[in-house]
């Protein structure tokens, strides 16, 4: 068993080390995300063939579905960080959880907005109170609640702990969002309406989708690390390492 892995993780738990690590990784993650995102967007909008049924309207899928995946993935990552933060009282984990929430909220908002833009021409409505749409809207409220709770405390640490607790409570909604289409379908008294078939997409349409998925994952890393760095400067402001950093940056400026 490699001993260096926990040691490395342990070191990363120290705010100055994480600050430097995040600063080193962020530009690469953002650059790669932009490159992959540009390729995926171009391929999705212009290269991939039109759908036999929906024509060009289906191209919203290349934004909508990766964003929807991210809205759940970020919640999962946030739950893990919140759990580690609450149980082991690791400050970095709390900060990672708290700074994940705005990114998750952004992706959830994109999911809802683009879904609405897709639903209007195809289904014939901007919005309907079905289980999937409703639970995704609830996900947005939970994200906003976490952000609000974190910032409503004067003591940041206290706010983070309270909000981390809310993260764990709100995690109940994640499987509801994911399985809502299946559960909802089985509630449909075995109708012949094929509401959900086996997910099937042709390869020429699949690869831009997967590329966009990779781009959004990298984007999350970049955005999260930028946020954690900003957060650490404020919350660790009194510590020696931030003061050192300040004088170093002044020298560079």
């Amino acid at each position: 068993m490699a001993n260096w892995v926990p040691l490395w993780l342990h070191r990363l738990g120290s705010p100055p080390v994480f600050y430097r690590f995040a600063g080193a990784v962020r530009p690469w993650a953002l650059g790669l995300a932009l490159a992959l995102g540009a390729v995926a967007l171009y391929a999705g909008l212009f290269v991939a063939p039109a759908d036999y049924q929906q024509g060009d309207a289906y191209r919203i899928i290349f934004i909508h579905v990766p964003s929807a995946w991210m809205s759940l993935f970020i919640y999962g990552a946030m739950t893990l960080a919140a759990f580690v933060g609450l149980v082991w009282r690791i400050k970095i984990a709390e900060v990672v959880a708290m700074e994940s929430a705005p990114v998750g909220a952004a992706f959830t908002f994109i999911t809802l907005a683009t879904g609405s833009l897709w639903g209007k021409p195809m289904w014939g409505t901007w919005w309907t109170w079905d289980a999937r749409l409703t639970s995704e809207l609830v996900l947005l409220f939970i994200y906003l609640g976490i952000v609000g709770l974190y910032h409503s405390f004067e003591d940041r640490r206290q706010g983070a702990r309270a909000a981390c607790f809310l993260v764990l409570v709100g995690a109940v909604n994640v499987p509801i969002v994911h399985f809502s289409v299946n559960w909802w379908n089985t509630l449909h008294q075995g109708s012949t309406v094929r509401l959900v078939g086996p997910s099937h997409i042709e390869a020429s349409m699949l690869w831009p989708l997967l590329t966009m998925m990779a781009a959004t994952k990298l984007y999350y890393i970049a955005s999260l690390f930028a946020r954690v760095r900003a957060d650490l400067i404020a919350s660790e402001g009194g510590k020696a390492w931030v003061r050192e950093l300040l004088t170093r940056e002044e020298g560079a400026a």
Binding site: P49, A50, D51, Y52, Q53, Q54, Y58, I61, M122, W123, G124, T125, T128, V193, R194, L195, V196, G197, P198, S199, H200, I201, E202, S204, M205
Partner: peptide, 16 residues
């Protein structure tokens, strides 16, 4: 109100 429901199959027209 009449809403259209589409399935989750996506493919080019030629393939269909």
């Amino acid at each position: 109100e009449v809403l259209a429901k589409h399935d989750e199959n996506y493919m080019p027209k030629e393939l269909k």
